[in-house]
Amino acid sequence: MKKILSAIIIIATGLLTLAGYLFREALSPVLALFTDWAILLIGIAGILGIGYLLRMHILRVAKKQKGNFYSIFLIIVFLLTVISGITLSPQSEYFKDMILNVQIPVEASLLGVVAITLLYTSLRVVRIQGWTPLSIGFLSSALIMLILNSGLIGFKPDSLAGRIAGFIQRMPVVGARGILIGMALGGLIVGLRVLLLLDRPLGED
């Protein structure tokens, strides 16, 4: 009974959402309600997720696992942020500075590490992939895009050189679109499988 009920809810919601694109005026209020519910549920799930995050770090500290110092640090900072957010409100200059002056540099540093790692791994393209059509395509498009997008070379958009450059710049995009079409088809099938109850990710199969 439970499975049937959940199946009915899944199918009904999915079909209504799809129908909303066709009969938008008629179904607009229902769809707005659905989306609000979905956003609410997702928000709650996000809070639960943060609960799991805290639980994981508290357990790590309690069990004195390796790296528990970082967990202690995280718990302290988490509590500090929550308390200051509640007491000071997000509009507070202090709160704003505290968040952004930490978050922006930390995330930018992470991107810097990514850049260095990408530089390092780019050494290994041929070593790993060998000389294949795909690796040659990858290398050539990467080189062309890097040079054209660096701003060192400029072409007037309506000139012949500009048109050629534009054409070359679009080639990787064409390839990417091809991959994305395949992905979209795969995604469509995944969605339909869930809607048609051929696949039950939550584990009744």
């Binding site: 994305l180 992905m183 979209a184 995604g187 469509l188 099938i189 995944v190 969605g191 696949d199 939550l202």
Partner: peptide, 12 residues
């Protein structure tokens, strides 16, 4: 959006 169903797919 660009990779539709990828979340569901990973759960499946």
């Amino acid at each position: 959006g660009l990779y539709p169903g990828s979340g569901l797919y990973s759960l499946s």
